[in-house]
Amino acid sequence: MPRQQRLDVSEVGDVTVVHFRDQRIIEDLGIQEMGQELFHLVEGEDRKKLVLNFSSVGFMSSAALGKLITLDKKVKARGGVLKLCSIRPEIYEVFAITRLDRLFDIKADESEALAAF
């Protein structure tokens, strides 16, 4: 397994919970690495229940959204479930404007996300 540079990964029961190490998910290299690490959880480690916790994320650009959409496709293709949680209001606005709040299952916080599996 490649060393996680961008993510902190833990397990709660059979659910994989991911926290982001970067407060700002902007620059190209960081987004590429974040994507590869997320994809590896699904394709390399066959994890089927994922929660992405955005509590530490203060800023992200639309390029990061692209990686999340690709991740969602990969999870669904394997019969898995992806949930997002703890998204601060400004970033939630980005999801709402682009209607991605309808594509993703977004919960208020981690406990609500875990309870929803």
Binding site: S61, S62, L65, K67, I69, V94, I97, L100, L103
Partner: peptide
């Protein structure tokens, strides 16, 4: 286009 990985910058 909702699942396209890019193309949201101008709207934002």
């Amino acid at each position: 286009h909702i699942e396209a990985p890019s193309g949201r910058g101008l709207m934002l």
